[in-house]
Structures are given as C-alpha cells and as structure tokens.
Design a protein around this nucleic acid. Structure first.
Lengths: 335, 335
DNA sequence: TTGTACGCGTTATCAC
DNA sequence: GTGATAACGCGTACAA
C-alpha cells in the first residue's frame, strides 16, 4: 500500500495538518518541523494522492480533450501543442475520441464534467444545437478549436478560414485561372467549411468569375472522395485548370486522380491544398497550400483554458491565429 | 452544485447505502424501493462522482497511455484502437506524450500510478533499465507495444519484426537485387530495430550476400535523415539497386532524394518501406511495404490490459500479430 | 431487505 | 505555529 499523509505525520511526530501545510506551503511552519517532515517525505517517497485531493478540492489537474479522430495528422499536431503546454502547468490530458458522432460527444462532455476535469477543449466536425445547449448550461471552461463560435458565445481558436480561402482563390486567379474547382467538406453545419466557401466565392465574384456549381464538390475530407470527384470532372469533361482543396489530404486525392489519368501537375492542372500538414512538403510535387500554425492552435487553446480556470478574464472570445500562403510546386501560372 | 448520493437518498426516503446498492447492483433491493430510487435518479439527473468512487475503490476506470509522439501517424492509429475498445469497457484514456525522453517517461509512469490508473500501455523508442526497474517494482498491469519485451518479463504486443524484415529482404533478393541498403533507426537499445536488423542480415547471409556497412544507415525514423543518407550514397557512388527502409516515412525520404537527383523509382532503384501507414498507398509510386495491423495492435493491447485488471491469467507474455508483405509499385525485378 | 457508521486520503476551519 | 476535526461523495461491513 502506498504511503499516506497519515504515515508521514506519524513518522515525523506531527499532525497531518502540519504535513499538509508543508506540502502545500499553505501556512507557516517552523523551520525545524518543516525539515523533519520533508525528510520523512523524502525517505518514504510519499506522494500525495491526487484522487483524495480532487475530492476535497473539486479539482483534478485534468483537462478533457474531445476530438473527432485521433489518427488525423492535423489533430495529432494540435494534441502535441495541448499536451506540451499542459504539462508545463501540470495538467494532464483526458483524451476522448468521438468519430464526430453527436451522442458520443455529448456522452463525453458529461462524463468529463463528472470526472472533475477543470476544462474542456472541444473539436468537432459540426457544431450542433445540442452542443450549444451543453455549453450554455455548464459553466466549466470550454474552448473550441477550428471554428469561430462566437455566435454560440463560446471562445474558440482558429485561423481566419474565410480570409485564407479568399487569398488562395485570389492567388489562383492571379495566376491566370478562371475556372477553379473547390473540393471541400460537407455543406451543412460544417464547422469552417462555410467560411471557406465564402472566401472562395468572394474572390471569384470580385474578379467577375462565374461559380460553376459542377466544380463545387463535397468530399467530407476524404481522400478517395476527392479522387472520385476529380475522376468525375474528367469523365464529364468539366475539368478545370485549377483545383483548390480545403484539405491537403483531399488535394493528394485530386493529384492522384490526375496522375492516374495521365495529367501532369502542375503542367496540366494546378492543385492547391489547405493546412500544410507535414506531408505537404514531402509529397511530390510539393504542395502549394495554406499553412496553419497547427501546434500553436493547440498551445493557445490550452493556455486560454488555463487562464479561464484561474478565473482570469478573457477579453476576446475569438482567437484568430495567423496563416500563410505557402507557394510550392503544385500550382502554375497560365496565360 | 451537482446532486450527490445523499440528495437522492433523502428524496427517495431511503438510506444512501440503498441508493448505492441500486446503482451498483451490489445487493438485493426490493423492487418497490428500487423503482423509487431509479425514478429519483432519473429526475435529478444524478451521476455518481467518479472521484469519490476512485478514492474508496482505489480504481478509476482510467488507463494510462504513454507514447513518444502523438502526432506520429502510426501511433495515432494505435491510439484509435486503444480508445475504441477501451470505450466499450468503459475505460477512459489518460494520454501522456514524452518525446521519448526518459525522465518524462519515468515521471509519467509514477504520476499515472498515483492517479490510480488501473493499467498502463507503454510505448517508447528505447526500452531502458530504468523502465524495467519500474516494471519490476510496481504490480500495476502494464503492456508494451511494438516490442518483444519478454526478457524484462513484461507482456507486449507487436508483430514479428525480425521475420517481417527477413521476408522483405528475401523478397528484394528474389527480385534480383544483390546490394540492398538498409535505412533504419538507432543502433543501440532501439526497441525493435535490432530484430529488424537480424532479419535483414539473416536473409542476406542465406543468399551469401555481403553486408556492406556503407549501406546500413541510422536515420532515427526521420525523413530528412533518410533523404540525406541516400544523397550520401549518391555522392559516394555507393548507391544500391534497392533500399529497404524500416519505416514508410523514411522510405519517402529516400524516394524524394532519388527523384530530386533524377533517378526513377522503381525503374532505377527499388524502395521498400515498413508499416503501411495510410500514406503508403497515397504516395506515388505506391509503396511496397510491410503491413502491420496497426489498429489491432492498440486493440489487443487494451484488451490484454483489461484482462489483467480483471485478474484473468494471461498465458502468453508475448502477443505476436500477423503482418503481410504488400506488393505495390515501388519495387521492380531486375535481372 | 434495509439502515448506521466507518473509512478512503486530503484540505480547511477551528480552537489552542 | 500547531493539532483536532469536519467535510468531500461514495462503498461496505455490521447490525438490525
């Protein structure tokens, strides 16, 4: 059995309150006794039981993280940021994977609360009313990643997807492209897809370019759906000179379809991605894409959570991190 | 304040023990009272406080998972398996990222124990004596992933790396290659690298092929080091006709170096990988590689942990999962 | 079958 | 400065 505060107290000939005081520095203790206690702790290898501590403090040094897919590279990188900063502040991560299923998410939201986590970092593909209800009801610190959720009055951290999509579309137009396909996630409630679509269409309209509905493809972030979408355009003979995929992964799917049909990238078709996952510079041709500060997104999220836990007032409800258009080899200027 | 067992008891006009009994099914309770209690629980939305429960039961429904790098795709996929099966048994995951640093690992090992986790799944790049000491000292259920650790008397799940490397080398030899470079991780304590090297050299020796030390490169799993290693071989003019990388990632690094130097894969040089991460079939040329049942590795690991928790005897200390050589487009037969 | 009372390991509020 | 002691929310012998 592990050694408890009681054992230490007995061995040091003091009361448990005194021991508690020295380990928490909560009240003055005479130097002599302090040293004696410290020594006993040293000898016995005593570690305070965090569970008992949680029970009385109603704190746990735990932060719940809910994600739709752990094995997603983007999310892994976000997790890295969360974990690393959390560790600095002595917080541990309770990880929950939901595959984006609503009831799983709701279940975890409640479960985490009952586990006394001090805050929740929440990622989902689609923000729904049930989520918002939970957020409104509970007063536990929550931050969302990858979506401006100010409408639901919950704080969030992400880049400006609208602006980023706008810039990329603009870039393609500047390079002479007039028919630009957009390969994206779901239409509906999809968490940042709407912003991206707005950015895309704004750029198109500004240049008086027609938005061809046949070139807007919903591919649910899936590489093979992106592959099929391009295949479809080839079959339909609607293939454009440029393809903008809102995920690097989907961009790879697009490129593969092109290659497998004998097209060359970027000679015949330009393809742009979004995110700049590590793979983007590994793949050949190297992908022109929007770089998100993925690690930082996680890092900022947990910093905000910790601030909230400490009761510090957060002025902004929306943390917008900078992005960057990274020009590489998958896009080409045409006349 | 959340509703407690006491509130429920009062509202249902019974003692807390009775409430406890109905929620745990621990002792018979008359149907009438049972229903009454259940109804109150329903109405109040009572959820037992897991922290208090942990304190008295010395259990937590928590399983600690220590990994060297969350954003590694392979590990993400393993995590998927762990999470999904864990969820089935009502276990949550306490995630710890160590970057493979020994003191971080040791710290977490102790921390997790004090957090009352019921079992630990441990991944590391190198198994060291300090780890073994911990395992020997503590009686908490532990399983290691990706290494046959039977020497340390701890149970593990992985594929047979030795055999897999042997088969791949054999395959390359069968395809006419006689000089085969091996791009691998560290030499020393490296967790499965030794096995892989043995497989490689066994195959080479069986065919009376010389092992050219200049073709054995230690690249620490890093894509760019693999890139450099191949660049080196090109500069040294020691380039072989085949390259076997013990990680798909390193294989990509190798291929990129080849491409960037004007070589064609597989026409000029064959390249084989290891793991079959999703990317392997996305990349062009599609990678010939060893498929590991990554998800299953995680799933089996947590299943074993849960069995151990339940006190069931584990007959084998080593769980070897099947692998498979996947032939794709990155290797070619030469005369 | 049901209720009482104690213990799990801490922190915090009192007295001293 | 120090030590009892009551919480925290729950499970469980023990009694009834």
């Amino acid at each position: 059995m592990a050694v408890t505060i009681k054992d230490v107290a007995k061995k040091a000939n003091v009361s448990i309150s005194t021991v508690s005081r020295v380990i928490n520095d909560s009240k003055p203790v005479s130097d002599e006794i302090k040293h004696r206690v410290l020594k006993v702790i040293e000898e016995t290898g005593y570690i305070p039981n965090p569970v008992a501590r949680s029970l009385v403090m109603k704190k746990s040094q735990l932060i719940g993280v809910i994600v739709p897919n752990i094995s997603n590279i983007f999310i892994g990188e976000v997790l890295n940021g969360i974990e690393e900063i959390g560790k600095m502040y002595n917080y541990d991560i309770l990880l929950c994977n939901t595959y984006g299923e609503l009831n799983q998410e709701l279940r975890y939201l409640n479960l985490l609360k009952s586990k006394q986590v001090e805050g929740i970092i929440f990622m989902t593909w689609e923000l729904q009313n049930e989520h918002k209800e939970f957020f409104a009801k509970e007063d536990i610190p929550i931050v969302m990643i990858n979506r401006n959720a100010s409408d639901a009055n919950i704080t969030s951290v992400s880049i400006d997807h609208r602006k980023a999509a706008y810039e990329m579309t603009k870039y393609l137009i500047k390079n002479g492209h007039r028919r630009i396909a957009l390969i994206r996630g779901n239409m509906q409630n999809y968490i940042f897809g709407i912003d991206q679509y707005e950015g895309y269409s704004k750029a198109m309209k500004e240049s008086n370019l027609e938005i061809d509905k046949r070139l807007i493809k919903n591919c649910e972030f899936k590489l093979d759906l992106a592959y099929n979408a391009v295949q479809e355009m080839i079959n339909d003979e609607t293939l454009s000179t440029a393809i903008f995929a809102t995920t690097d992964y989907m961009a790879f799917g697009a490129i593969n379809a092109l290659i497998d049909n004998g097209y060359k990238v970027p000679e015949d078709v330009s393809v742009a991605g979004f995110n700049d996952i590590k793979l983007a510079s590994i793949y050949r041709p190297k992908l022109t894409t929007i770089r998100q500060p993925i690690y930082d997104i996680g890092a900022v999220a947990i910093r905000v959570i910790i601030k909230k836990i400490k009761g510090e007032e957060i002025k902004d409800n929306v943390f917008v991190l900078p992005h960057e258009l990274v020009e590489r080899d998958s896009c080409k200027k045409i006349k």
